[in-house]
Computed example of a mutant assay.
Amino acid sequence: MSAVMLSPEDRARRVKVLLFDVDGVLTNGEITIIPNIAPNTELKGVEVKSFSAHDGLGISLARLAGLKIGFVTKRNSQVVAIRARDLKIDHVYQGQAHKMEAIAKILVTEGCTLDDLAYVGDDIIDLPVMRRVGFAIATANARPQVKAAAHYTTPMSGGFGAGRDAIDFILNARGILDEMIEQYLDAENPESQRADIGVGNM
């Protein structure tokens, strides 16, 4: 079968590694900075981002299904590092102005090909990756150029369940979404017990 004839479902069934941009994909794209108001301090602040709990649970389902998960983002953020830790993300690349450099490293680490990768993006910085991976996914709030490059567009926008939409689509294409849900709900499953245990301010 020619690659150009593959359906989104066909592409989803090949995915081994699912990668996300962060701002505008796992968040709504807003970047809130609370300045340090103490006198004579450096020009620094606290960055705030909001993540969807639906996406977090979806990542747990994807892990149960054997997918590797990664974040590839241009910004450097302690908030992203904390969220990645809580979700036990396999690959975390921040400060990536040219994201294909991170993709090349992930391919070597995982021993896979571009056809095995899915990537979820929302803005033009994501285009070099989306044009090359096996399954390119745009969020509902993505720029028109990004949607044009995508094999699938999520019903929900970034920060409001777009990540979960992408995961549900992949697992549905494999016919295992319901099975993964039941595994997650199994009180005896140690993986589901470890999933997304954040510490917040505790």
Rank of each mutant, 00 (worst) to 15 (best):
I34W: 11
L6E: 01
V46E: 14
A3S: 14
K147S: 13
V25T: 01
N36P: 12
L185F: 05
M1S: 12
M130Q: 04
A65W: 02
V199Q: 10
C112F: 02
T73M: 03
I137Y: 01
G24V: 04
L57T: 07
V92E: 00
K44D: 12
L26Y: 00
I197S: 15
G159C: 03
M156P: 14
S52Q: 08
F20E: 00
L18E: 02
R131A: 11
R143D: 12
N28A: 09
L117D: 03
P144W: 07
M1I: 08
I69H: 00
A187G: 15
I82R: 07
N141D: 13
S77K: 03
V4R: 10
V25A: 05
E179K: 06
E9L: 05
V17D: 06
L18T: 01
H98N: 15
P35S: 01
G56V: 09
T109K: 15
D168P: 09
M1F: 08
E30Y: 09
R13S: 08
M180E: 04
L107T: 00
V133N: 03
G45W: 11
G134Y: 02
L114Y: 04
G175Q: 10
G134V: 05
P39S: 06
A81I: 13
M180P: 09
A173D: 07
T41W: 11
V25N: 03
H91Y: 08
